[in-house]
Amino acid sequence: MTTTAPTTVPAGTGRGPALLAVDGLTVRFRLRDAVVHAVSDLSLDLHPGELLAVVGESGCGKSVLAHALLGLLPRNATVTGRARLHPAAGEPVDLIAVGERHLARQVRGRAIGLVPQSPATALTPVRTGRRLLEETLRAHGHPRRAAADAAERVAADVGLHPVDLDRYPHELSGGMAQRLATALALAPDPPLLLADEPTTGLDRPLVDHTLDLLRRRCDTGAAVLLITHDLAAARRVADTVAVMYASRIVEHRPTPDLFDHPGHPYTAGLLDALPDRAFTPVPGHPPMLTDLPAGCAFTPRCPRTTDACHTTPRLAADGGGRLACHHPLTPGAPA
């Protein structure tokens, strides 16, 4: 079920205030003898009803983004920049500046739901699905009586049979566990959902089911940030796709545009690697995040490199999207 992607452009153009406005987000990890540049100067806006997919190779920093927004980074991380969350009801809050107490009480679970990567390990093994759901609902203000009904309703939403609700997590199949984890994230009805590789290890039908759940959530007004390495998944459900490479967003545009007319040579290379396209890899390796080259990090692997590429290209508006490249591919031109 691919809904028509809105024609509105990703960052900062119209459509009222963004639900999530990330501005200049930078995350560094200090190591004993190196600094990991996990996220660099990342900006993006996410509006209600929008599903934004962040795609990229493993180790490009995309997962760190999700953890930074939830304040779940380890102690040796330094985060700068802003990430303002504007819930429809309530005061806007800067997720980076606000303290752990506020995040724990007001944000995680309530304002931002997290669909975890491996549901089998994310679920408490000693509670049945029903108890997990009811506890979550009660923690978010449902009275006891209402929680029981609401639990069944949320479960039905994600396609869980009431009988399966009375099983313990280890008695559930991978797919059912994923549905339960999703139900738990959806139960408090958060306006923003973060899904961090929610489909790893699931088979196609389950992948599609999980993705469709997220899509349906968007269609009822929530915003979803989907982090994935799976381009097919992004293509199926995302309104806009942001491509991350070596800690930076290099391209961000509406899904059909990105898949049909990539502007960044890296995006083009990634698309060419798909089995239903050229099936040829991008040559070379991504750089280590501890040792990023000066200028455009894709330079060593890029066929279009010139001297200009030694300065970092700015992520600038480009034909309905955003692009950070000195020598973009023009639509229709060969890569």
């Binding site: 795609v55 990229g56 190779e57 493993s58 790893t200 290890g201 390495h229 381009l231 290379g269 990634l270 698309l271 690697a273 798909l274 089995p275 099936f279 040829t280 890899p281 991008v282």
Partner: peptide
């Protein structure tokens, strides 16, 4: 056995090649 399921498109294509 699902050897490329966790990999990005480029690495998958490389392993396949």
């Amino acid at each position: 056995d699902e050897a490329t399921a966790m990999l990005d498109a480029s690495t998958q294509a490389h392993v396949a090649a």
